[in-house]
Each structure stands twice: as C-alpha cells, then as structure tokens.
Simulated assay, not measured.
Amino acid sequence: MTTKLRQSLLGFFGAASLVAVLAGCWTAADAGVAIGVWGRMIAAWLVGLVIAIAMGWSGSRGEQRLAGIAPLIVTVIALLLLAACFADPGLQGVHRWIVVGAIRINAAAIVLPLMIVVLGQRVWGPIAMIAVLLLLVAQPDASQASGFAVAAIILLLAGKRTPGALASVAVVAVLGMIAWYRPDPLASVAEVEGIIGLAWQRAPVMAALAVVALALATAAPILSGFRSNRATALALAAYLAGTAIAPAIGAFPVPLVGMSMSPIIGFWLGIGALGAQRQASRP
C-alpha cells in the first residue's frame, strides 16, 4: 500500500509537470528559442524524476532516514547555497543565482521545496525559516520569499501554538511582505517570466493547457491520495502554488513552463522527499 501511495504522488505530479514542461518547450521552440535552451528543460525533468524515485526507495528503508541529523544537514546546506548567491556580482543588484559556467542556478528554487518537507516540527525550525527569509529579502526574491513564508506559517501553526511560535509566525509574515517592497529592476524575459503570454500569442489552447497542468502539478501534494503528514503536504503545495502565482504579479520565472531548470529540479526534490517521508511514516 505504501508503495502504491508513493507511486500515486509521483505519477500525479509527474504527468502534470511533464505536460507543463512540454507546453513550455513547444512554445519556446515555436518562438525560435534554441534547442539547447528548451532541451535542457526536458533533461532536467528526467533527472528530477530519477532523483525522486531514488528518494522514495531510500525512504522505504525506515523512518530513521528522515529523522536524526539529516534534516539539519539539509537545512545547513540550503542556507549555505542561498548565501553563496551573494558571491556573484548578480544582475542589476539582484543575487538569486549561483553561476556555473554559462548556467545560472536559482538556489532557492532548488533547495526550498526539500527544506519545507524536512523542517516539519523541528524545534530549530523557526530559526531556520527566519534565516531563509532574511536571505531571500536580501537577494531580493519576492516570489520565493512569499511562497516559503506561506509554507512556513502553515508548518508553524500546525505545531503547538506557543507564544514563541506565534511570534515566529508574525516575523515570517512581515519578512514575506517586506520582500515585495525591495527594489527588483529585472525585466521580464519572454521565454522565462513571460512564457504564458508567449504561448497565448501562438496558440491560446497551449497557454490554457500549460496553466491547467501547472495548477495540477502544484496541487499534487494534496490531490494525489495521501492522507498522512497533512500539514507538510499542505505547506509544500502552498509553496509550489505561491511561486506559480507570483509571475502574474511580477517578473518572476514561471515554474515548470518557463525556461528555467531550477524549479523543475526543486519541485521534484520536494515531491520525492514528501513521498519518502510518507512512506517512512507508515507502518
């Protein structure tokens, strides 16, 4: 049963995300974007799928895989990667990427979904959440900050509502809002932030398909048949949905559909970790 439940999560998300990715690739190809750009999207989806399957297999070996020091290690690595973004000069004062050759890696888009799943009810969770948001505000990245803030609030309210927890909720909410007031001069790139509009210009049905597929992919944690760890699933879904909605408000990459590999890998990491966690938490 646990294997079937994990497979339903991977299958639901996999199908929806693949449609979203392919819709974006078709749009980019039709707009004349080089195959080396949109081809990497398909490669990233395949890599993410393999990683998610491997994470589920590992999780089936026992709850200890997701307990102990592992969540702390993941959190420390995530914070270090977010901080490493400031080592690069950035673009117009914006520091969201780790540059590897010609590739820009959005660290937050990769590490935050996984971090949301492993944080759970860790006693040090609120400190980690606030540290993440401080880095996101400094970058600045309102899309990632707002998505993570909503997820963090859900996780905090799911635990004991002590004065400290409620204070953490207030701090997280304020930091999430501050991120939207930080200067962000970056212009929209058609095949990244403006991919839905680009699809609409070429084939409205493709734009509609991309939006529906993206919506289903973001809802996968709560629509795929799982019932345990409800708060974690809801938090992950809230983050995914938040980053998917943000491009309608500002110049932020459209996850899965836009030509950016980082959200694809990040979404798969979150889904893989959630499937592994749920499998490990069942008898």
Rank of each mutant, 00 (worst) to 15 (best):
A149P: 11
A149C: 09
V150F: 13
V150R: 01
A151C: 12
A151M: 12
A151E: 06
A151K: 08
A152V: 14
A152W: 15
A152H: 14
A152T: 13
I153D: 03
I154V: 11
I154Q: 06
I154A: 05
L155I: 05
L155H: 06
L156G: 15
L157P: 06
L157A: 09
A158V: 02
G159Q: 01
G159M: 02
K160V: 05
R161H: 08
R161N: 10
T162H: 03
T162A: 00
P163L: 13
P163Q: 12
P163V: 13
P163R: 11
G164Q: 10
G164F: 08
G164K: 05
A165P: 07
A167E: 00
A167F: 00
A167L: 00
V169T: 10
V171M: 15
V171Y: 15
V171D: 15
V172Q: 13
V172F: 14
V172R: 12
A173Q: 11
A173W: 04
A173T: 13
L175Q: 03
L175H: 07
G176R: 01
M177N: 10
I178V: 08
I178Q: 03
A179V: 06
W180F: 04
Y181C: 11
R182Y: 07
R182S: 07
P183Y: 11
P183R: 09
D184K: 01
D184F: 08
P185Y: 10
P185L: 09
S188I: 13
S188C: 12
V189R: 14
E191A: 04
V192Y: 15
I195D: 06
I196W: 15
G197A: 04
G197E: 02
G197S: 04
G197Q: 03
G197F: 06
L198M: 09
A199Q: 12
W200C: 02
Q201L: 14
R202M: 09
R202S: 11
R202H: 12
R202Q: 14
A203R: 00
P204C: 06
P204W: 09
V205K: 01
M206Q: 12
M206D: 08
A208G: 06
L209Q: 15
A210T: 05
A210D: 10
V211N: 01
V212W: 06
V212F: 07
L214T: 10
L214Y: 02
A215P: 03
A215I: 01
L216M: 00
T218C: 05
A219L: 01
A219K: 01
A220V: 00
P221C: 10
S224E: 01
S224A: 07
S224M: 03
F226I: 09
F226H: 14
R227Q: 13
R227V: 11
R227Y: 10
S228W: 01
N229H: 13
R230E: 03
A231W: 11
T232N: 05
T232G: 13
A233D: 02
A233Y: 07
A235D: 06
L236F: 03
A237R: 02
A238N: 04
A241I: 07
G242D: 10
G242Q: 11
T243K: 01
T243I: 12
I245V: 12
I245P: 10
P247W: 07
I249P: 08
G250R: 07
A251N: 13
F252L: 05
P253K: 10
P253L: 09
P253Y: 11
V254D: 02
V254L: 14
P255R: 02
L256M: 09
G258W: 05
